[in-house]
């Protein structure tokens, strides 16, 4: 579709104006991601400067790169700004109750192990309301791919302080600053047993794309934390007036440290944001270890599990 917009120059020597053949703007639809988007719902509801759209952009590019069939991919989201992702991606997508994206995805994966199940949700949904589910899905090493968009606060409900809010931050519920300890998600998930853990900011679009591709190849519980700007409710109260200001801060302050100890993976906006791929290890996943265990205990009487749907 883009080719039709361009008058292709016929010869290689252009005498005066080399720019004549280049269209400056086009009204036409112009991205190859549209096959994966529910175009009747675009433009989406996310604010100007929000990073969730950028993370979805990188995710869709990774889906295209890794050539996963559209009918084998499922997206499960919870509630919140990032919970809207399921509504915009044109695959089998599920918008579940608050915090229960992971239990839903667990059921989906166990009922039909052929599916590639992706949980795409926010920090409040996954780590606060659904924190217990996150712990046990990682502990069992269920083969689901979790993408957690962390914008430091509960954004859809009005900017309240969340477990991922950094100390010193001003949120709508903490006008004098937040004093509690912040949850370091890579460290938390490593202790729980995830096999792949990475953290990137929305500034690192190509790295997110690569990380998602790597996750699709891994078997087991993978976790990518995507730090995203929220200009409307976080940035505005904390020196970053626009989403672009926060992106510039990510660019300036983030340090790539691959394979470091996750205890040192600090996340302090404005001071140091450690990003990178922290954990990439092998552990038997839930279905494999179940087959292995019952095969050993029950012998030939046990048939390996192939899903509830024949």
């Amino acid at each position: 579709m883009t080719e039709s917009c361009v008058a292709e120059p016929t010869n290689s020597v252009i005498e005066e104006s080399p720019t004549e053949s280049i269209p400056a703007t086009e009204e036409a639809a112009c991205t190859h991601l549209e096959d994966f988007l529910r175009m009747d719902r675009i433009p989406h509801i996310w604010c100007p400067g929000c990073g969730i759209g950028t993370s979805v952009n990188s995710f869709l590019r990774a889906v295209i790169d890794s050539k996963i069939p559209q009918n084998k991919l499922c997206i499960v989201s919870g509630i919140g700004c990032t919970g809207r992702v399921a509504g915009y991606i044109n695959v089998d997508s599920f918008h579940t109750t608050h915090g229960r994206a992971i239990p839903f995805a667990t059921g989906l994966k166990l009922a039909n192990p052929e599916l590639m199940v992706v949980v795409y949700s926010g920090d409040g949904d996954l780590t606060a309301i659904g924190g217990n589910h996150l712990v046990h899905a990682a502990r069992r090493n269920i083969d689901i791919k979790v993408i957690c968009v962390n914008n430091f606060i509960y954004s859809m409900t009005g900017g309240q302080a969340a477990p991922t809010t950094p100390a010193g931050t001003i949120a709508s519920t903490t006008p004098y600053g937040y004093f509690e300890n912040q949850l370091n998600l890579p460290q938390f998930l490593e202790a729980c047993g995830a096999v792949y853990i990475a953290r990137w900011t929305t500034f690192h679009v190509r790295q997110i794309q690569k990380a998602v591709c790597e996750c699709f190849k891994k078997k087991g519980f993978t976790f990518i934390e995507v730090i995203a700007p929220c200009p409307t409710l976080y940035g505005r109260r904390n020196e970053y007036r626009t989403g672009l200001d926060e992106m510039k801060m990510f660019k300036e302050k983030s340090k790539i440290k691959n394979n470091i100890d996750t205890r040192e993976a600090t996340l302090i906006p404005g001071q140091e944001i450690v990003v990178g791929k922290f954990v990439d290890r092998e552990r038997p996943n839930f279905l494999d270890s179940m087959d292995e265990h019952y095969g050993r205990v029950l012998g030939d009487a046990y048939k390996p599990y192939t899903g509830a749907i024949a």
């Binding site: 020597v13 280049i22 703007t25 086009e26 009204e27 639809a29 991205t31 400067g49 626009t242």
Partner: peptide, 20 residues
């Protein structure tokens, strides 16, 4: 010739002006 290596296509109506 200095023919540009690429070109950019913009859908103006979908833009929210974030400036990224």
């Amino acid at each position: 010739s200095r023919k540009p290596k690429g070109f950019v296509t913009i859908n103006q109506e979908r833009c929210k002006g974030c400036g990224f």
